[in-house]
Write a protein that binds this DNA or RNA. Structure first.
Lengths: 223, 223
DNA sequence: CATCCGGTAATGCTGCTGCAATTGTCGATC
DNA sequence: GATCGACAATTGCAGCAGCATTACCGGATG
């Protein structure tokens, strides 16, 4: 088994290489994102271990790059930033698992095995619905080829709905798409977002409408 | 889907029951290990959510007990003790996954799904019956390729029947699919749901019909 | 200091859902 | 095949949970 490790702390990297080596796992190691891209083109890794804080940028930016090159290699993100919202952020961008530092090598191995068991799931580069095109990575929306501003909260809702257009999205899924565990929600803020979003979409002639299924959730439907 | 939740924080338990209930997952809840053992003998759960700090002892001790009784039900351990050593401890004893608090319900659901994926049970993505297509994970129903709204309770009944189309489903099974064991039912509410569902299915030209087996249960049959 | 975002709350409304009463149906038994 | 009892089907009703909309205002932002 061959893994690519992208990590700038050299002691940690060396320790991992030794530890995993004992289990017959080969580690390629680089400290920079730039090199990582090239390595993935030249090799076919079973999985990639990715740090977030790197000398030449945020590690997560590597994920869309890799996906765009057509690879669906599983990625495990390792980081000290282990807040719920950040985990979800990582997973949404297309990471396959998230591992908070510090961790034991045994746990890392367990997660590598787990990730390799999973069926492949890819992140979508852009979402089309009606006359609307959303890029969930760039966080921008175009309607009829015109750039269209949507506030952050509403955008979270819109993306969650558009990712599963014509399918029901549970209310709780939407709440989780917008708020993390600590931010308790004591009001109908989500309803308000939906309402404002509807108005926005209608005014812009987006060609989509948000439909409610009572007691279940919402549904973005193309007209 | 039916889960056993062993957790002494009642607010958290209630919140989880509500949150997962919205996804059609029924939760049985107990606060004590002693009761848990008995419940697992009487029921066949899809998975078990286990807290570590419990009034009558360390939650992990439950795992070998369960395994010795011959059950391989997947167990997800939830805990605030989220140090690396403790995570590995849990996994070594035989837990299938480990989830540190706080967590997002979305993450819990993802891990439940992941854990259930392990056996050959790749979970049928959709159920086809007559002109109707149901996706039990996304909770959406299409008839003749048209999105079709079904209220919460009726949807639970419909899915339970469709999963076993052309086979009899016991009345008690349907009740369990719709209500958890705290919500006692003192009327013919289930019959009412069946009736309304029949009308809905007939109006939509679904190509299926619900038949009754007197004294036993119901049966969803393709025409 | 002007603008806009976003959470809160009030209001009105829709329709799901549990219950019960009534009617209908099955099947066992004689 | 007539009768009777148990079970099932249907429907109206009332309560209320869930949803839509709007106004308000504090706070962030530039």
């Amino acid at each position: 088994m061959r893994l690519l490790l992208i990590e700038d702390e050299k002691e940690l990297a060396a320790a991992l290489a030794v530890a995993l080596g004992k289990h017959g796992i080969v580690i390629d190691h680089t400290t920079h994102l730039a090199d990582a891209v090239e390595l993935t083109l030249q090799n076919d890794y079973d999985a990639i271990l990715l740090d977030r804080r790197l000398p030449d940028g945020e590690g997560l930016t590597f994920i869309p790059k890799l996906r765009r090159s057509g690879r669906d290699t599983p990625i495990i993100v390792m980081t000290a930033r282990n807040e719920p919202l950040e985990r979800v952020e990582g997973l949404n961008i297309g990471a396959d698992d998230y591992l908070g530092k510090p961790f034991l090598v045994e746990e890392l191995r367990a997660r590598v095995r787990a990730v390799l068991r999973r069926p492949i799931n890819l992140a979508e580069p852009e979402i089309v619905a009606g006359h609307m095109v959303i890029n969930p990575l760039q966080l921008n929306v175009a309607i009829n080829s015109v750039q269209f501003d949507v506030p952050r909260r509403e955008l979270s809702v819109l993306i969650a709905l558009a990712k599963r257009k014509n399918k029901t999205v549970l209310r709780s899924m939407l709440e989780e798409a917008v708020y993390n565990y600590e931010e308790e929600i004591q009001s109908n803020a989500l309803d308000a977002h939906i309402s404002r979003l509807r108005k926005r979409l209608a005014d812009a002639g987006s060609g989509v409408a948000i439909h409610n299924i009572r007691g279940v959730g919402y549904l973005l439907k193309e007209e």
